[in-house]
Design a protein around this nucleic acid. Structure first.
Lengths: 200, 200, 200, 200
DNA sequence: CATGAATGAGGATTCATTCAT
DNA sequence: TATGAATGAATCCTCATTCAT
């Protein structure tokens, strides 16, 4: 007979995996991919070095798994908040607000995502871009709706979606820097809405 | 007897230093700081490994020197273009246009700067932020002037300068990605001007 | 209450042990001692890693047990065939013939033995040499008998026995190499008999 | 200016390379490929770990280079001795004699070759077989000459060459085993010559 | 001024072994 | 009796840095 039942084992393993991913986020955020040490990740999670290799093929696979985890959490978080609104302008506000909130609640994960998107590794970039496609599409849909309803002025929806994502990420990346919370989400949202011709 | 006069020697050394910095920009852009190899840098510049250490204390010092080089070039490049205009709105357009131009003309250097600004290393970030202060101040001055002249609506000059820099960098970072030139500098400038209440 | 009677349990355990030894032979043959993985051995036998440690002290003990198993099987196999003949020349022919047969029927086990005998590990070598003593003595007895009966010319029995074993092993080791069955057992036997002065 | 002239540098590097190969032979002979430690190899040669990697791509490349070195030395050694004789029977005697001599003079190298030939690694085997082709052909030529001249009875030249190589290797592999010098080269040569119908 | 062989700290990865159930 | 998650010692390999010429 096995040490645990199938269900118990699955739960334990899922917890261990989550713990490792949490540690990995911290470590990658603090030291970057190259500077991250597997040993620190496992130890911080309360395990020995080898355990990481029972759950992930290696350092790179761990990073990719972390990307998927982050994107899923982030996209879900934002979609949930935006989904609560009907009006495109309000949705855009929620989009920026939830972005700042995500960075505040999951600083390590946000850091990893930003480092990667603006980093040099093409493979990592491609992976995370793919994982974030749903969010890009969400913004694109908001702009189209806003334009259709006459709330926003006529703009190229995809280019603008890209631009808003860029502002979002750029602004977000300023949030966690020690003491440089210069940009408030309301300022950013107001700026964007004004640019879209939606005066309050 | 010396093989070269003092002046000749100085020129040779200045050229060698520049060659190494050029190579370094390429290498750091392609592989990131941790992934960059001193050997590749020196070889690409036409020298042996040891030569790098005759000009720079080490890898980190080389990186910092490169930051200064990049910032000086970049700030000068933008200031020169912006300086050619009088009107704040035109200046802002030139600001965005020259940014895109810089990225196109100096892709490796732009890449290094962006990787660092959005990277994990606090020391590097601080160094490059400091080196870019003049550009931040330039934007801040443009906004103040525009507001004073009534060309722009009333906004917080520093927060907005920060936001514009953010947009600038975010947009710029999209430029070099193979085939994803989604954002044109005119679109970005128009978006920003609209947000500032300066309709054309 | 016990799930199995003592006898049933003993049989199950004997079967498990045999299954593990079979897997081990395959694994050690394919990857050598150092390259062999306990996990692959147990999995191939249909068990989990831990089970190996219920039957053997560890990897090394498993190897030694495998040596004993191989030697016992091999010696028995050869002795049985040689025993069916009376004439020393015929016995020698059977010796070579049965050797080739053994290699064909038990390729993995033959491989393990040869790898070990010609390998670097002194402890393993000593162990397998000891286990094969009966076969060396068998050959030695055949030569003595042949010499006594005047079938073979006068030779040093032990040195010649050693030499014949050497030829046997060398020839055998060529058998399994893909497509290089250059040596037939009849050729080898004929060569040896000729060397012993026994013309057909 | 370089530290040394081109010629000096080449000589130094050749010496270092040889020293590393010597150490490698010792280490691989004593511990096998898997058990060999790069660190011990370099240290025994009087260098630090890293130096090995300045001369060889890695452990495997070092092993392959060693194979080539061994085969070249060995083939040359045997060919030289055999070449001093005219008569095929005498050549065969020299062949066996020089083989035993080689093993006595280069025990580590002989050990590496034998371990590999009888080992489990197909790639290594193929490499060393290829490197030893010249020796196989040498034996094959001796047999053909002997048969042509009527010194040897009519045998399949290639199969017999293979068999003689086998005996050679098998006998040789007994030489270095502590205290088990059972087979003398003269005994082996006499055995082989007798088998070939060349009675003295 | 430039060179490049040598160095060795540092880190990813492997896998035999343990042990609680 | 069998299990398999966890362990951590062991080792290959990388590469920034040194320094003698």
């Amino acid at each position: 007979v096995a040490r645990h039942t199938k269900a118990e084992r699955d739960e334990i393993m899922a917890e261990t995996r989550q713990a490792l991913l949490r540690s990995a986020a911290q470590e990658f955020a603090r030291h970057g991919y190259a500077g991250a040490k597997i040993d620190r990740i496992s130890t911080a999670a309360g395990f020995a070095k080898g355990t990481v290799y029972n759950y992930f093929e290696g350092k790179q696979a761990l990073m990719l798994a972390l990307f998927d985890e982050i994107a899923a959490t982030h996209v879900d978080f934002v979609a949930r908040q935006v989904g609560g609104e009907e009006d495109p302008a309000r949705q855009l506000e929620r989009f920026f607000a939830s972005g700042f909130e995500f960075v505040e609640h999951h600083p390590a994960q946000a850091r990893v995502m930003l480092n990667t998107i603006y980093g040099h590794d093409a493979a990592f970039k491609a992976h995370i871009f793919a994982a974030y496609q749903p969010m890009f599409q969400l913004v694109s849909r908001i702009i189209r709706a806003g334009t259709r309803e006459g709330v926003f002025r006529l703009v190229d929806p995809d280019a603008t979606a890209m631009l808003l994502m860029t502002i979002y990420l750029g602004a977000a990346s300023q949030v966690e820097g020690a003491g440089m919370h210069w940009l408030k989400h309301a300022q950013v949202a107001e700026f964007a809405l004004y640019a879209l011709g939606s005066r309050q």
